[in-house]
C-alpha cells in the first residue's frame, strides 16, 4: 500500500555545472519552499537533490507578515510570508552544520532592504564552508521597502549585483522578478554587473478576495502567486532571457513534473528549481529527477546538457 520508494540515484549524464557550481543533477529546491532543508529531511534523502536554495536570509532575523499569509487559488497559491527568517548569523551557526552532512549544493538565498544590507549579508557568507553559491533575491514582491524597487529597476538591480560581487567570491546567481515590463532588460543589467547566472521567475503579484466578507484573503492584501498556474508565463520569460544573456539561466515557475522541468531546459534553462510542488508532494524534487532520467533513456539523450536551448522555432 505504501508508495514505492525507488532508488533515485542520478546518473553521470545528469551532471551540470552552473557558473562553477557543480551539481549531480540540475534540480534545485526553490527558496522559501523547502525551509532550511531539515524540514523535509524526514521525507526525502537530501543527497539525491542537485541543490537546495534555502529560505531567504536577511542581516537581522525577521518576523514576517501578519497572518493570514496563504490562500489556495486555481492551480496554485498566493503567499505573503514576508521573508520570515532566522537571520544570516543563526543560519551559519544553526543550519549549516546540518546541511553539511549531505552531499548537495547549498545555495544561500539572500536579500536586503538597502545596498549596504545586501553587501553585509554577502560578506558574512563569504568563505563559510558548506555554502556553495549565493542567490540574490532582488525580486520578492512582499516587502514594500525592499524587493520590488531593486528588481524592477535595471540600475538598482545592477548596483545590488556589484555590491554583492565585491563582498563574496562564490558563484553569484541573481533571482529575477517577473513583475516588470521587460525582464530581459534586468537580466542584461545584472549580467553586465557581474552575475554568474540568473534564476527566474519569482512569484507573480496577485490577490484573492472573499466575496462574502469583501475582504482580501491575505492580510497583506496582495501576495505572490506560484504553482502550475504561472508555468506558461515562466516558460516564456526563461526563453526570452536565455536568448539575451550569455550566462546560465535557472528556470522555475510552476514545475510539477519531469516534463515541466525538461520544457524549461528546452526553452534555455541550464538547471531548474522546484518550489510549490514540494508542498503538494514532499518528494517532488526526487521524483522529477527520476522522471527526467527516464525521459533521457527513452529518447537516447546521453547528457542532460544536450537538451538545453533546443527549442525549434
Amino acid at each position: 500500500m505504501s508508495k514505492a520508494v525507488k532508488n533515485y540515484k542520478a546518473g553521470e549524464g545528469m551532471k551540470v555545472n552552473i557558473a562553477g557550481l557543480q551539481m549531480k543533477n540540475p534540480v534545485i529546491t526553490a527558496s522559501g519552499t523547502f525551509g532550511y532543508g531539515e524540514e523535509y529531511a524526514d521525507y526525502i534523502d537530501l543527497n539525491l537533490l542537485g541543490g537546495i536554495s534555502v529560505k531567504g536570509l536577511s542581516l537581522a532575523p525577521r518576523a514576517g507578515n501578519p497572518p493570514p499569509r496563504i490562500m489556495e487559488t486555481t492551480g496554485g497559491m498566493l503567499n505573503s510570508v514576508g521573508l520570515q527568517n532566522i537571520g544570516v548569523d543563526a543560519f551559519i551557526e544553526e543550519k549549516i552544520p546540518f546541511l553539511r552532512k549531505f552531499d548537495v549544493a547549498v545555495i544561500a538565498n539572500i536579500y536586503g532592504e538597502s545596498y549596504a544590507d545586501y553587501a553585509a549579508v554577502a560578506a558574512k557568507l563569504d568563505g563559510v564552508p558548506g555554502v556553495h553559491a549565493l542567490e540574490v533575491n532582488i525580486s520578492c514582491p512582499n516587502v514594500q521597502k525592499g524587493g520590488l524597487s531593486f528588481g524592477a529597476d535595471p540600475r538598482a538591480a545592477a548596483e545590488v549585483t556589484r555590491r554583492v560581487r565585491a563582498k563574496n567570491s562564490l558563484p553569484l546567481i541573481v533571482k529575477l522578478t517577473p513583475n516588470v515590463t521587460d525582464i530581459t532588460v534586468i537580466a542584461r543589467a545584472v549580467e553586465q554587473a557581474g552575475a554568474d547566472a540568473v534564476s527566474l521567475i519569482n512569484t507573480l503579484t496577485g490577490m484573492s478576495i472573499d466575496l462574502d466578507t469583501r475582504e482580501p484573503h491575505l492580510k497583506s492584501i496582495t501576495g505572490g502567486l506560484s504553482g502550475p498556474a504561472i508555468k506558461p508565463v515562466a516558460l516564456r520569460m526563461v526563453w526570452q532571457v536565455a536568448r539575451q544573456v550569455k550566462i546560465p539561466v535557472i528556470g522555475m515557475g510552476g514545475i510539477m513534473t519531469a516534463r515541466d522541468a525538461l520544457e524549461f531546459m528546452v526553452a534555455g534553462a541550464s538547471a531548474v528549481q522546484v518550489g510549490t510542488a514540494s508542498f503538494v508532494n514532499p518528494r517532488s524534487g526526487v521524483e522529477i529527477i527520476d522522471g527526467m532520467q527516464g525521459y533521457m533513456k527513452k529518447n537516447r539523450i546521453k547528457k542532460i546538457t544536450d537538451i538545453v536551448g533546443t527549442l525549434k522555432t
Binding site: R69, I70, N79
Partner: peptide, 8 residues
Amino acid sequence: VGACAGCV
C-alpha cells in the same frame, strides 16, 4: 511540515 511558514 514547517517549511512554508504560511500558517503562523
